[in-house]
Design a protein around this nucleic acid. Sequence first.
DNA 1: CGTTCCCTTGAGTAGTTTCAATACTTGTGG
DNA 2: CCACAAGTATTGAAACTACTCAAGGGAACG
Lengths: 253, 253
Amino acid sequence: MAHDDLEAYPLTGRFLMGRLRHALSTEEKQVLESLVETVEALDEPTTILARGKLCDRSTMLLEGTLLRTIEQGERRFIVGVHVPGDFADLHCFALKRLDHNLVTIGPAKVGYVPHTRLEELMEQRPHLARLLWFSSLLDAAVHRQWILKLEQLPAVKRVAHFFAELWHRLDLVGLGRRDGLRTPLIQADLADMCGTTAIHMNRALGQLRKEGIAEFRRGTLYVPDRQALERFADFDPSYLYGKGDLRVRNELG
Amino acid sequence: MAHDDLEAYPLTGRFLMGRLRHALSTEEKQVLESLVETVEALDEPTTILARGKLCDRSTMLLEGTLLRTIEQGERRFIVGVHVPGDFADLHCFALKRLDHNLVTIGPAKVGYVPHTRLEELMEQRPHLARLLWFSSLLDAAVHRQWILKLEQLPAVKRVAHFFAELWHRLDLVGLGRRDGLRTPLIQADLADMCGTTAIHMNRALGQLRKEGIAEFRRGTLYVPDRQALERFADFDPSYLYGKGDLRVRNELG
DNA sequence: CGTTCCCTTGAGTAGTTTCAATACTTGTGG
DNA sequence: CCACAAGTATTGAAACTACTCAAGGGAACG
């Protein structure tokens, strides 16, 4: 079914996959697919939307990795990461301007949805609108987990937690691998999202390697024992609302 | 205008005040007010909604303070704080279960909105629904700022930033004071939301006091120079999406 | 074959935690 | 009114975690 969707809906087929995608009717999936007006392939790192800029369209990430960044003086911080299937800036639909930047790294493909289409949808398809809302609440749940992680864990466990999260999120949209993952993120990026310096991040990764929990080398993460990684990082995937005790069981309308 | 609203809509009059409340029609304000089915006054700390529990209603905070907490082993962490006028768990409407707890501290008053009413609203009042969505995106923006704060700032500046934020948010809903604020939060709570130990938080508060930036004593925050506080904490209120020019209101909180 | 970007290592300093102990505040009952 | 308990706030010293500055090594790409 997952794979049927990817063939039938090459652009939006991963939206909410592993979560509430099953609550979408065939008609709704078609409407969703038709929302994407233009598709853009970006090979170089690109700022899709800069902080404070007015915008009239929202972005769905189709392939690659997208970051939410905030510049602060010399340094850049990362406050969010997206995987394919994520509707990255629904925020922008309601807020009109963002408090942060949206930036691609590595090769990526994005689809743009004009806000006029979303307005129609709000009026005419409340059930689908509700699922878009739902997807933006999932983002908030991830944000909360990042807050918790930053409050609670030392640097080593923060990266470990991030690796575990990213892996799970890739799994949910059908992009998971057996023994790890590949990502365009570099050590400095990991530092920027874990609130450490790049140098300290390097030492943290060294420790993960030495303890046999995870090996991260130039964009390739290799994990010999997934459970060991998740145990080490105090990782509990339920906040992703995929599988686990928070999973949404009802069919929403 | 603000005050008319508080009289005309005693329950929901602070909802989106200072933000997009002006975009609500009179009729919509009435509908909103009518959503609140029951009101509850809570004097003791109470868990309104526990992690993982199914729920069929959402909560608007009418008076007092509400926390989002996550228990982790022995310790409790705070991943969010709410002020009157906040629709605290719209999440719950879409997600059905929360990944965290909702807890009141100090005397508080809450209003409950049955999800059946929200479902009607999604169908029949898309514009109002969009503003509810907007309000949940504001929460996410605050989350991101917390992430940034935790990534970027040392403990002293984290509390300072939180004080600045709380003060602004109280201002927005007409509960601001001239020279500071009162809150039921204790030092241990501040520690739980800044990712430090209570002891270190105590020293941080001592430093703020010594440097003349802020004085926090048993729930009372006194700030001699607001700009100095905000400068110290690298605080920029734009992420709260309020009006550019915030005016301090003097009436009681 | 040399840039350029990315990663690694070392030593000294600053920020934070832990453990342990001491006060202050508020409310209660004698 | 005082004694007491519970919760909250404060202080000191040692251990740990993370940061800064400084320098060196490795891979990829023209």
